[in-house]
Design a protein around this nucleic acid. Structure first.
Lengths: 153, 153
DNA sequence: AGTATACTTGACTAAATTAGTCGGGATTAT
DNA sequence: ATAATCCCGACTAATTTAGTCAAGTATACT
């Protein structure tokens, strides 16, 4: 698993939305400014996250985005799987994006058995962390702030 | 970390060399045939593994390749690092290929702290497996064979 | 009703990476 | 000598990545 720029931007955007989760929406422009993401590119990314069902949008003057489900219900594994494809280092050990490889017998492939362990290790971490957990980490890492709006991601 | 075709070929080639480790050398052509790797491409790969010090070559008629160090001394982490670059999913948590990212304070970046865990999980597996371990796995997975030359990787 | 603000859609581009191929040169056992 | 084998650098086609851009649609506000 390797996180592309696009993937990192997506995570950051979702984290902003997680931190501001509520009835209201957040504008693309604000996310882009706060996180230093090219606005046009972020539009594209959020659109993608929308068709994948992670966020919903509101159009027009007071428009913007918010999370579709609660932040506890969105795991990083889900997000990254959607953005980058398989979490596994090779297709033949991927559960969600399995692809047969060229070796004659997968059950007897030593390399595959190691990659299986790598996959499990990666998935183990990423399934266990939700957007809500990320938000908790932000708060823990920042420590107590005077102004609660004055955080950084 | 994602394993490219090239990376997978390299691992397979090193595993063949591990299984045949000894004073003699193995020809490119034999590795290519046994593992179904395009010969010219494998030449390129082995050349790279040679300049990286994983293997040594012997030229001329009875030429070929063998591992430079013993198979116990070569970890998959080393090999993959050389072939694919960072094991970490993002540069800012990579130890060997560190690259600063754009976030204002790495120490307070929640995404980074998760990626750190992912990196550690990946490295944990890959540092622990050497080419010799891989060879053991091949033998374990194949079970007892009548003809000891009749194995598959 | 009109207008400014925001999201929407789809096409477009430049640069980097990936998976090879190819020709010809250098070495060495026989 | 010569045939087998590694060595080296250049070349290519397809894919992915990181964006940009223009024009369209919905909505709040006056």
């Amino acid at each position: 698993m390797k996180l592309s720029q696009r993937g990192e931007y997506a995570l950051r955007a979702l984290l902003v939305l997680g931190m501001n989760h509520g009835p209201g929406v957040v504008r693309i422009r604000d996310i882009a400014q706060q996180q230093n993401i090219p606005r046009r590119f972020l539009e594209q990314i959020l659109n993608d996250l929308k068709s994948a069902g992670f966020v919903v949008s509101k159009r027009g003057v007071a428009g913007g985005y918010r999370l579709q489900r609660g932040p506890e219900e969105i795991s990083l594994a889900d997000i990254i799987r959607h953005l980058e494809g398989p979490l596994a280092p090779v297709g033949c050990v991927s559960v969600n994006y399995y692809q047969r490889c060229s070796c004659p017998d997968e059950g007897k492939c030593a390399i595959r058995s190691v990659m299986q362990e790598v996959r499990d290790a990666i998935v183990g971490v990423l399934e266990g962390v939700s957007v809500a957990h990320l938000c908790d980490r932000v708060r823990d890492l920042q420590g107590p702030l005077e102004n609660p709006l004055d955080y950084v991601i």
